[in-house]
């Protein structure tokens, strides 16, 4: 565990000092500032729009962090052969995978925590300015939704680590990870549509395609399971059952993916 933590520490430091982080933070600040500037245009919906924009800013920042900094933290090690130096130390390949993943996780958690504080300040400010339109707003629901933004990014972090183990190029890792994100975000709707019966009335879908999409839906994470934006924007209560299920689903997916990544990585050769 000491070695895993040592590796996660340097991964975290390497990530947090990356200059791209400042760019991503500035982008998020711009969205939050924009939220303050345009909030007055939305009249009665100002509360909903504020929550939606803040959570979206967190989500986009998280995506940029994991895709651009996270990919570099893992895949560049292999690309630039820094891994030769690291694996010349008594660190097993499995420890390497977990150390890198935890480092990426700490880095994303820290970055998102800072952005969440700024986001809370924005919400507080707008709540003060338009108190009458924040009737349905709930802090616990806002924090739950923000936490699940982090869970979604944590799952994507595991996907980045997994793809880094099967490719030797950071660009390919990035492309695969973005594809997994796009499929993961939309797969629930696609499967729901196919099962609804409307699909048969509207377009002809072959059985093999239907089976393929079903299979993909089990392989790719259903990222919609971590989306609590609508509930947070409308102040709707979410049961512990759904929270527990989403959290458990995310945790199991990450663990399985990292175990698979460790197995592949331990067989891999580093030329």
């Amino acid at each position: 565990m000491k070695k895993v933590m040592a590796l996660s520490r340097i991964t975290f430091l390497e990530g947090i000092r990356n200059r791209s982080v400042f760019g991503i933070a500035l982008f998020s600040l711009f969205i939050l500032g924009l939220n303050i500037a345009v909030a007055g245009f939305f009249m009665r919906d100002v509360g909903k729009v504020t929550v939606d924009m803040n959570l979206s800013a967190l989500s986009v920042a998280g995506l940029l962090l994991v895709f651009f900094v996270g990919v570099n933290l893992m895949a560049k090690d292999i690309d630039r052969k820094t891994i030769h130096l690291v694996l010349s130390k008594p660190i097993s390949r499995m420890e390497y995978i977990w150390g890198k993943y935890l480092g990426i996780l700490f880095f994303i958690a820290t970055s998102l925590a800072v952005l969440l504080v700024l986001s809370c300040l924005t919400v507080l400010l707008l709540n003060g300015m338009y108190a009458g339109y924040f009737g349905a707003f709930s802090w616990p629901m806002f924090f739950t939704a923000a936490f699940f933004v982090f869970v979604k990014i944590a799952v994507l972090g595991a996907i980045v680590v997994f793809f880094s183990t099967i490719t030797s190029n950071s660009f390919i890792t990035l492309i695969f990870s973005i594809c997994a994100f796009i499929i993961g975000t939309t797969i629930e709707e696609v499967v729901f549509y196919l099962r609804s019966g409307f699909a048969e009335q509207e377009i002809a879908i072959s059985e093999s395609l239907r089976k393929f999409i079903e299979a993909v839906s089990y392989l790719v994470p259903n990222l919609a399971a971590f989306d609590f934006k609508t509930e947070a924007a409308h102040g709707l209560a979410v049961g512990w059952g759904r929270i527990g299920f989403s959290l458990g689903y995310g945790a199991v997916y990450v663990i399985l993916l990292l175990i698979l990544a460790s197995v592949i990585f331990s067989r891999r050769e580093f030329n």
Binding site: E14, N18, S88
Partner: peptide
């Protein structure tokens, strides 16, 4: 073992 690779690429920000 202590190993030094040719042109070691170390972590830029550490």
């Amino acid at each position: 073992i202590g190993y030094l690779p040719e042109n070691p690429y170390l972590y830029d920000h550490l």
